[in-house]
Design a protein around this nucleic acid. Structure first.
Lengths: 335, 335
DNA sequence: CTGTTAGCGCCTTCAG
DNA sequence: CTGAAGGCGCTAACAG
């Protein structure tokens, strides 16, 4: 690979001049500029971004830290951030945390040691204090789907409580009175908040909460099955089911069908997130939309603004909406 | 951030000694080593990998280039590569090519300029010659799901032709005689090969190929719908449908149901890839497995071997298998 | 507007 | 086994 020296030599100028035309910051005599550009072309020269980064302490790249690489949810997140940043000519370095404290810390250290200019993350394990410290002493961060007091500008959040409320209210509106709920792990803030919304909806409708109709899962498909089986074994009446995410809803649907239930006649089901397969399932899943792509875009804009001097509008609080499809219907059971 | 100088000073040794204990290559007096390690801990020192990379011309990180960030297929690919490399203490830098020549080239240049030690890629637009040149003159690459003559060691491929053959043979075995086929774009090698397999299966069974029962799509969900509608409008009999991937199969299934067809009684459908939602659809999709995770792991091993001196076994040719679920059944139509 | 001179933080010869 | 010195490729003052 050619270096900036060879370009300078071939163009007959000093390397600072080459650097100047490459970065376009200072003005350069047109003739010299042409010469340099010619030399660059002839040598097929590409600046070494590592060296540039070491010298300038900037890298024009921002780190992304997600929990998983192979789920539609994080896929949408990465996709949105990448394309937003690409438009501003920034690159993206992606790392994975696997929801594990050590791994997430390592990832952050890696991104810092790679001189990223900022980090956009969606993590659970890292503590608020750790993140505040990073943002204060190391490099700017933006956090998706989590609110951190003290990082209000950098937190892009979804009103999960409202989402849970919408899901359950929808079912109540359809005449359901006994509504089961399969929640995600309570350590996850979004899971806890969604459940809160469910409770509020019940309360406002004057329905009493039956703890036996709440099952604690881990946001995974099997939990849908396990939860449904648990409810059935308890021999309580219920005509509708809210799930903390679409995976569990899908698991519950498969299980219900395997048990010979007819959907949605025998059981109305609502999911959460509206991930890509929500409309692949049958009946198509009624669910709560999670505007993760927009939220991700906003996190990218936030970074563009604070680190690179852009001036985008950034929306920091998002409201989910109910997406009514075919997995819910009026309660036909008398009760 | 502390530098190696500060560590050296605090430990009372020279920076070369610090470098040595950090990299563990040369032997260092145990006492000095302890001192250094103590200093490292106290200062919470982290080597700057950018600087290390500039000086050593290695980065212990390998680039990944995929077409999309937000599909299960590429998600599985990234996931498998990442975890295989992580075990060997290598990092991963992910970039996206969007199936676009210019973007893919940029991505490669980016990864090279970031001093990646190698690149693992799954791309369509980049030419064989370009890749051969990169591999020869710049840095080692591994290619997933594509065979390149001259890069035989670095090509990890799937026998797509066999996959198409398996899909159609399965239907023939169920008594179907009129089998429609929705293919992916013929520019994509895998799509063309899968279709070849379909044709071979028909031929071997003594069935004639009807060009009107082939629809050209782009591997996207809507193509499944469009294809099915096209076939129906042609007023030809057909009792089964093979789709070039699961997305199109899912689109066809939704469409069929919307038209009032009963599945699989009225139409048997086979997909390809066995992506994560294949068993979410109803009826659960019979499809051809695409062992993308294993293939991705092998590509990582290949790099581990050639770049980092490991000695893993690597399998370079994979055979798909048929996954029979509930979307296919015996042909009941006489014909 | 252009060239010269120091580093950025680290690795790697080379002597000792 | 250890320290000193040079350099990776580039940017960023600083003079001129």
């Amino acid at each position: 690979m050619a270096t900036i020296y060879e370009v300078a030599e071939r163009a007959g100028v000093s390397l600072s001049t080459v650097s100047r035309v490459l970065n376009g910051r200072a003005t350069v005599n047109a003739k010299l500029k042409d010469k340099v550009e010619k030399a660059v072309r002839e040598l097929n020269y590409r600046p070494n971004s590592i060296a540039r980064s070491l010298a300038s302490n900037r890298s024009d790249s921002v780190g992304i830290l997600v929990s998983e690489l192979n789920t539609p949810f994080f896929g949408d997140l990465m996709q949105a951030v990448e394309s937003t940043l690409r438009e501003a000519d920034k690159h993206v370095v992606i790392t994975v945390g696997h929801n594990n404290l050590k791994t997430e810390q390592d990832a952050v250290e890696f991104l810092i040691s790679r001189n990223c200019d900022a980090i956009i993350m969606h993590v659970e394990a890292l503590s608020d204090d750790f993140l505040i410290d990073i943002n204060k002493n190391r490099l700017p961060i933006a956090v998706v789907n989590r609110h951190i007091d003290g990082l209000d500008q950098s937190s892009i959040t979804l009103n999960n409580e409202l989402g849970g409320y919408l899901a359950t209210s929808h079912l109540i509106g359809l005449g359901h009175r006994h509504i089961a709920y399969i929640t995600g792990p309570m350590e996850k803030r979004d899971a806890a908040q969604r459940l809160e919304g469910h409770k509020r909806a019940l309360k406002e409708a004057g329905l009493t909460l039956n703890a036996s109709l709440i099952y604690h899962g881990h946001y995974e498909e099997e939990d849908g099955k396990a939860g449904l089986l648990a409810f059935l074994s308890r021999n309580l009446p219920f005509t509708a089911l809210v799930c903390g995410n679409d995976w569990m809803a899908s698991g519950a649907m498969s299980c219900a069908r395997d048990l010979g239930m007819s959907l949605p006649a025998d059981l109305s089901i609502v999911g959460f997130d509206d991930v890509v397969f929500a409309h692949h399932v049958f009946p198509r899943l009624t669910t709560v939309s999670n505007p993760i792509s927009q939220m991700a875009e906003m996190s990218a804009r936030q970074i563009l603004n604070t680190v690179y001097g852009h001036d985008y509008d950034v929306q920091r609080l998002f409201e989910p909406t109910l997406v009514v499809r075919e997995s819910t219907m009026k309660n036909k059971a008398k009760s």
